[in-house]
Amino acid sequence: MDNTVFSTKIEPTFENVSATRLAVEAACKKNYPQPAAEPLIGELLMAATEAMNNAVEHSGAKEVEIELAAGAQGLIFRIKAAGKRFDPPAEIGFPDLDGPDGLPEGGFGLAIIREMVDAVDYAYNDGKNTITLTKYISKS
């Protein structure tokens, strides 16, 4: 059973993303205080930040719901925002740096999300996109 350890609703601004990242970090560290968990929490925060940035930039929602749960396997970060359905590309990878158009200036966000957590789930229900990020962390 997963326990919600942090939840909030924010107005979608990048300043609020920065503040929420710090609050989520504090909640993560409270549940996994051992030093070995720190780099894993850092990776979850990178993915969570990119997901929040995307919601602010693309959803057009008036508010964004954020929840962090701690379960037996680790941490689960969930973000929900109203907007058009988002279907992620079938293949998500870092941009091709040797492509014909030269160095890409975008396309890093989704790849960071994919790379930094153990599972990513995209869902669309009742006009809201929900992205769930799971990061496995041992309690010991």
Partner: peptide
């Protein structure tokens, strides 16, 4: 202490 994709994109733009 932290960099996100917007920071990466900024430096790629600078390099270009």
């Amino acid at each position: 202490s932290y960099i996100d994709s917007s920071g990466i994109a900024t430096f790629v733009e600078g390099l270009k």
